[in-house]
């Protein structure tokens, strides 16, 4: 009984976390599914977003402005990975790892050489806080998050329907064809990485406000959570509808929420929080395996 009540009590928190990580997962969706590359920058850029946002808020910048500035920092990180990949011809995965590693030092610098920087919701006016996750009314983070995500999905839907957006999609889909149609695939790749890491850092900015601190390690394993959201979204919701682009992005966010609910469930069953990463990896591995178990093509 105790397990059930603690699980239900944790549901609003799981939803809020799922929504915040859902934004991050949109970034992963962009690189993993649209650009068709694996970008590991995100483990670093999410922490960069959190660190930049918290430090700006602490120095008196309004929370919204701080979050947008944080997103710009993430975009810069994406640019670096993009340049390493396209100009220096370093494989995408390695480019991301290099940027991610470099960002660890950068993030420490941003946070004044501290691994952890708090921001109190009592002292600063934040966009959202964990404290109000069960409160009724406007201070509750969930409606705000739903609004932000709807706006972001709307924007992304429009962008990927434009000429430039289609060029990015074509680049991810078939590079040879894209180039034959006069698309600068290098620039399209860089652009995709910039947008993706902007989203990821923005999510980090929201996450750090939500939890009331930024931590240099807050991005560890982020890519796995992002992938989990993308895959869970596809496995659970993909079959329900012939998904258009906006619905696919929504399914990614739902995937993130499902991930956090499953995680809470597992924790409510009494598992140790130290085992969280192990559990995460197992969940992702399970969901990655699932589509292949349904007798998909063996040759692929």
């Amino acid at each position: 009984m105790n397990a059930i009540s603690s699980f239900t009590a944790s549901l609003p928190g799981a939803c809020a976390q799922g929504l915040i990580w859902g934004i991050m997962a949109l970034g992963v969706f962009l690189t993993f599914r649209v650009l068709n590359t694996s970008d590991l920058t995100v483990d670093g850029s999410i922490a960069t977003g959190g660190a930049a946002c918290i430090m700006l808020i602490r120095s008196g910048v309004p929370a919204w402005t701080a979050a947008l500035a944080a997103a710009c920092c993430g975009m810069l990180a994406g640019l670096v990975t993009g340049l390493l990949h396209t100009r220096c011809r370093i494989p995408a995965i390695l480019s991301g790892i290099l940027t991610q590693l470099a960002l660890y030092s950068v993030n420490l610098r941003i946070m004044g050489s501290k691994a952890n920087q708090p921001v109190s919701v009592d002292k600063y006016s934040l966009m959202l806080s964990q404290r109000y996750v069960r409160a009724a009314g406007l201070s509750n983070p969930i409606p705000l998050l739903v609004m932000i995500i709807s706006a972001l999905i709307g924007l992304a839907y429009y962008f990927f329907g434009t000429e430039i957006g289609c060029a990015v999609r074509a680049t991810g889909n078939n590079r040879v064809m894209a180039r034959a149609q006069g698309i600068d695939t290098d620039r399209a790749t860089i652009l995709g990485l910039i947008v993706a890491n902007g989203l990821v850092a923005f999510s980090g900015a929201l996450l750090s406000q939500y939890q009331g601190f930024a931590d240099v390690n807050m991005g560890r394993g982020a890519i796995v959570i992002g992938l989990a959201a993308v895959i869970i979204g596809e496995v659970v919701f993909g079959k329900l509808l012939a998904l258009n682009f906006a619905l696919r992005m929504s399914s990614v966010v739902f995937g993130a929420i499902v991930y956090y609910i499953v995680l809470q469930l597992v924790l409510a069953l009494g598992l140790n929080t130290n085992d969280l990463k192990l559990i995460s990896a197992v969940i992702v591995a399970a969901f990655l395996t699932l589509p292949n178990m349904k007798g998909g093509d063996r040759d692929a």
């Binding site: 329907g161 434009t162 000429e163 430039i164 957006g165 289609c166 060029a167 149609q181 006069g182 698309i183």
Partner: peptide
């Protein structure tokens, strides 16, 4: 259709 043209933020 847009081969060789500048691509912008117009609907594709």
């Amino acid at each position: 259709a847009r081969r060789g043209k500048k691509r912008g933020l117009k609907w594709s």
